[in-house]
Design a protein around this nucleic acid. Structure first.
Ligand code: SF4
Ligand code: SF4
Lengths: 162, 162
DNA sequence: CAATCATGGACATGCCATATCCGGATCGGG
DNA sequence: CCCGATCCGGATATGGCATGTCCATGATTG
């Protein structure tokens, strides 16, 4: 699984949404302007989040997106899988079936040792992402970012939140 | 990082080479026939293993490939990185620089919280792969595969080893 | 010298991430 | 009740990259 830009964008959007006051919505237009990415394309990623139940949307003027759950209950893994799907990094093309020494009617009962190791690594990757929530991210960002930028960003966003 | 077929092929080739008797070589032609993949293309993956020092090669008739190290000292991670390179699954395109509220001369001193989480997950993935050696794989395969197939495969391979 | 082999570059092809556009449905405000 | 803003989904280009093929070169064996 090759993580595309959509994932980076989605994570940034969630970070922004997670410090929006309760009940306010932010439009795709504002989110795209804030991050400097094309609005139409960002919409695709947001649709993924919407279908996964991570964000809630409303239509019409002053519509947009907000988190559908408390920030503490949304993990990085949720966001990544909502945008990327759940394909594993390793895809087996069953080349063992080409072994000229195998009887043609032989049927493998389980995935081979190679695939099992690769999938175990994927599982470790997922567990790491599942251990971090948007609330954790928010807390880290508060410490990382200079207060000045944080203040001006919040102001900028509230100005556009419907 | 999206794992391509080359990785699957390389791992299978290493598995085969790791139960080849000491000092024998197996040509790319034989390896490609055994796995049912195009010879020229498989060669690319094997060249990666060669440049990484995982396999040793000789030219001329009866030439080919053998492991350059004991099977216990070659990990899955070594093979994967030899073929795929060491790019991480998550690539940051620095969209935080587009934030309209940031002063233009502001310079970030460290990667942001989002990237740090993603890279930590990559690290967990790598550690899992680094924990399994080709010797471990060989042992598992001996238990998994029916003895009949194992015997005929070994025979097939020794027949072609130079 | 002839056959076999690894190496590496050039090239064709097909798929997929990226990006754009538009029509439809829904809602808020006048 | 109408208008404009917004989300949603499908259709469609486009560029890059993985896949796959071909060939020239140099090295080795017999
Ligand atoms: S041995 Fe594993 S990786 Fe190879 S074809 Fe079988 S299941 Fe796939
Ligand atoms: S916040 Fe993280 S992921 Fe986003 S642009 Fe900055 S370093 Fe990249």
């Amino acid at each position: 699984m090759n993580l595309k830009n959509q994932v980076e964008w989605a994570l940034h959007c969630c970070a922004v949404l997670s410090n929006l006051p309760e009940g306010r919505y932010l439009s795709a237009r504002s989110l795209s302007e804030f991050h400097g990415v094309p609005k139409e394309y960002l919409g695709k990623a947001l649709q993924g989040l919407s279908k996964a139940g991570i964000v809630h949307t409303t239509l019409g003027p002053s519509g947009g997106y907000r988190l559908a759950l408390p920030a503490g209950e949304i993990t990085f893994l949720n966001v990544v899988e909502a945008v990327e799907g759940r394909k594993s990094t390793f895809q087996c093309s069953e080349i063992r079936a080409n072994n000229p020494c195998r009887p043609g009617d032989f049927c493998d009962d389980k995935p081979c040792a190679i695939a099992r190791v690769m999938w175990k690594a994927d599982e470790a990757w997922r567990q790491t992402l599942a251990a971090v929530s948007l609330a954790d991210l928010q807390q880290t960002l508060q410490q990382d970012l200079p207060a000045e930028i944080l203040r001006r960003s919040t102001e900028w966003l509230l100005d556009r939140a419907g």
